[in-house]
Design a protein around this nucleic acid. Structure first.
Lengths: 233, 233
DNA sequence: CGGTTAATTGATGTGGGTCAAAAGCAGTGG
DNA sequence: CCACTGCTTTTGACCCACATCAATTAACCG
């Protein structure tokens, strides 16, 4: 009954796994680990499911698929992330999820998670807090999309990701693992891949950062923050 | 111990009010009604508060104030709406709220609401559902902002508001009360007031709708939906 | 009646989109 | 080892949706 080894100890995943089951006889039926290759679709929108999922290893992203083609990336998912905290409360998800790298995913039955949520105050608190965090971030992100230029939006996304990566990786010499194509950045911040290329080239020329081969190297964190932070002093 | 009269019977507000208190002796101390004039700031971001608020009558909006001037409107608040469902879980709000018309607001102590939330499954469920609704809407809205043109964004906002207004008003002849200035629409969907004016003029010329004097009159709902719905068939 | 706030309209500017070609760079297979 | 293919990034030329600036009108109000 131990948590997924790659998840952080204070995350929703770990807490759910440690939480006592109301039905001690059921063993490990409620939990199941699966591996998927990169590019595999892990969940699809408007489809009901009795399971909820946690990323244990690798990267994925949550997105909305548009009928005319094109997609909106809503969040990049790192180890320890639920596909979405609200999927604890709804059978039918409004988003799709796709693997960015090879990923290990933990599949939990919603009924069991929900039982633990109801009887374990710690689980409940963790879920509440992750809903709060998502809502706060959504507000901030909407603001960035409406009020900021292309450079600022890209910088904002990178800073946001850096923070999340640093929470689970040791960062040396400002080098962050970041397995995104320019198209993913574009689909997240509402630009074209061509323009993301131009923005990143500018950042490189100005000695702010370099992004290639799945590694982001930040050369001038001060300047990056000046550009990308929503509340600059 | 009755609910605020203007709130819908199945809303969070009504459920909280009907929920039994863990401390029957405290009377009505935990609840307090206040009236505010239009334009008054009802809550300000980065400020801690032991209260949470519900709109009982009138309109308001939740927004983020930017340091350089300018604001991002996140949601228009109608009777029955909490300023935000997540404020049940956090003392310090990340948003401000301003009255759009004169408003009556119900102020509740967070501690009392939180107690009722913990012990009444119905309240808990209502809060969960409104968090789900907010998250779903945020995803959809982010998609609209990133992928849609000015016309489509304005149409989306109006359709969304029409739906919410219709839930609490009887609509006759497609006339919706809508006390917004063009600047509010602009601050919500990320355009300038000037461009919102042009978009609305176009809609009027094409016989789709007319918005003036706080009334939205929809002349061609089909066409409006064709333009504004995210998932058009 | 002047003063304020909101909406309209026109002229002009520009950030980022679109299109297309080229170059880099795996992987694959002969 | 090289040719071929598919994917990603880069670069350039051109375009347009929306911003910006500014003037005018309309509505309201003490």
């Amino acid at each position: 009954m131990s948590a997924c080894v790659t998840c952080r100890d204070d995350g929703v995943c770990a807490l759910i796994s440690r939480s006592p089951s109301p039905d001690p006889n059921q063993g490990e039926q409620w939990r199941h680990f699966v591996f998927f290759d990169a590019r595999k679709e892990l969940a699809s929108q408007n489809t009901a499911s009795d399971y909820i999922f946690v990323i244990c290893a690798g990267w994925a992203f949550r997105y909305i698929q548009l009928a005319e083609g094109g997609r909106q990336i809503l969040k990049f998912l790192l180890p320890g992330d639920l596909f979405s905290p609200i999927s604890i409360f709804e059978r039918e998800s409004h988003f799709s999820v796709k693997a960015l790298t090879g990923v290990q995913v933990c599949r939990l039955t919603r009924s069991e998670v929900h039982k633990r949520y109801l009887r374990d105050r710690k689980v409940q608190f963790a879920v509440e807090q992750s809903c709060v965090a998502e809502a706060r971030h959504a507000s901030e992100f909407i603001t960035v999309l409406c009020k900021r230029s292309a450079e600022e939006r890209v910088a904002y996304l990178l800073l946001h990701l850096m923070q999340r990566i640093a929470a689970s990786h040791v960062i040396r010499e400002q080098r962050y693992p970041l397995p995104l194509r320019q198209q993913h950045i574009a689909d997240c911040v509402g630009l074209t891949q061509v323009h993301v290329s131009r923005v990143l080239s500018l950042f490189r020329e100005r000695g702010i950062l370099a992004l290639s081969d799945g590694v982001l190297e930040v050369r001038n964190p001060q300047e990056l923050k000046r550009i990308g932070l929503l509340n600059r002093s």
